[in-house]
Design a protein around this nucleic acid. Sequence first.
DNA 1: CGAATCGTTGATTCAACTCAACGCGAGTGG
DNA 2: CCACTCGCGTTGAGTTGAATCAACGATTCG
Lengths: 255, 255
Amino acid sequence: MADYETPVLEQEQSISLLDVMMRRLKRRFDLSSRAIDALNDLSFKIRNFAPNQYILREGEMATQCSYVAAGFVYRHKVLGNGARQIVAIHMTGDFIDLQHIMLDRADHNIQSLTTATLVQFPAQQLLRLCYEFDDIGRALWLETLIEAAIFREWVANVGRRDARARTAHLLCELATRREAAGLGPRGNYELPMSQEQIGDALGLTSVHVNRTLKLLESEGLIARTKRAVVVADWEGLRRAGDFDAHYLHLRDMPD
Amino acid sequence: MADYETPVLEQEQSISLLDVMMRRLKRRFDLSSRAIDALNDLSFKIRNFAPNQYILREGEMATQCSYVAAGFVYRHKVLGNGARQIVAIHMTGDFIDLQHIMLDRADHNIQSLTTATLVQFPAQQLLRLCYEFDDIGRALWLETLIEAAIFREWVANVGRRDARARTAHLLCELATRREAAGLGPRGNYELPMSQEQIGDALGLTSVHVNRTLKLLESEGLIARTKRAVVVADWEGLRRAGDFDAHYLHLRDMPD
DNA sequence: CGAATCGTTGATTCAACTCAACGCGAGTGG
DNA sequence: CCACTCGCGTTGAGTTGAATCAACGATTCG
């Protein structure tokens, strides 16, 4: 209800936000200067969200595509049995709903995890830019393809790994994506999720997440302080989580 | 090894195969006649596979994008613990690896389920067509976006539904996709998968799949004869599987 | 200082797994 | 044509990883 209407800041506020996006789009293929200009000319809105606000609800019409300029965001489904499954966790630098460039109805919910700042583009106009500039279309399509690769890995993670490996794998993925996004070293980062949310991402209960985190801690693989999870032994955590970053399709990502 | 080298039939054999593909690509947006011509002029190979052959292995370079002209194909990951997770099941009319239009290394395995006929296009050339013809690019991107939506639903299915609902949901999805592809009524179809394969798709053991199928049968939701699964009570199965087709983003798909 | 949220812990239950055996039909080769 | 094997489905018995239920502690915040 009320929390869904959030202050909308008009543009001009921060060109730097778009610069960060440009860097992301160029992570694989370069963008022509004309394409960069076109993206800069694109109209957009900046929206700020407090933690745990709904950004989009399943079933709603979606005419915007959003980019995370700051904060964490997650996407989830609520099933008929009342359970919730988080299907994606996004951090600064991620697009969170590029599918709306083609699909006009949301098939899941999007919520802020922390306070978050989104840059929102009209889907129609973004699509038009994809037609006009090959390199923009390629960069955005690539984003959605890599996201799909992550979904596949999540299917495998939730389907076939036990709680310990599953948890370790998630921590490794987020650490690796964080590093790849230039947000800091993967060895040390704060995971801004409650244990219940971690459970909803992993298909576990919060009680079992608690026990599993304590197990990983007792093994010396992670260290914890309140909400923060710190990778204490990357190689050990990687092995525990059966983590291999190749599915993230990052360039220049050794070990 | 030897089974990986399969006879490659050169084109001209069957223009009708491409016609089926055109229909698929037009399911959402029409294609211009120039785009249709360009697709018809595109070089391709037709490859036939016996059941259970590898089509592509994780880690290999992939330069082709394949379309299923006949048969069933599945994609899976093998995890460090030796377990296997099927991440997608494809039937006639599906593209199975459009991600290779951008990503050149396979992040999972692709195998034939039944005897299958694939139409394979050079990824580079297909991508070029996407640049040249907006409508082709749009149609292919849409395919990958809907596939991603299916992956999300699978995460939720495997993560948060019990064996009965999970199994029912898979049966509903395949039945619905089959009908949407024009392959026959959703109420009656043969599922060409062993119980072990069904288990690998659902994150269950084959033993438990067996018990679950028998449960669904005893409830009168499905009927079985050998390998064939027949939907005996669509509405009941839909309810059991908590199935709502909206995530498939089909047009004109009531109830 | 409450109230609320989240993390922690123990006791118990249960859904799904494991292990093991057996049946059955399809192929195959003597 | 039959004996054999092999893959797959079926079934039972026992085990276990994770869920459930329930309580309590810590932190934050108005």
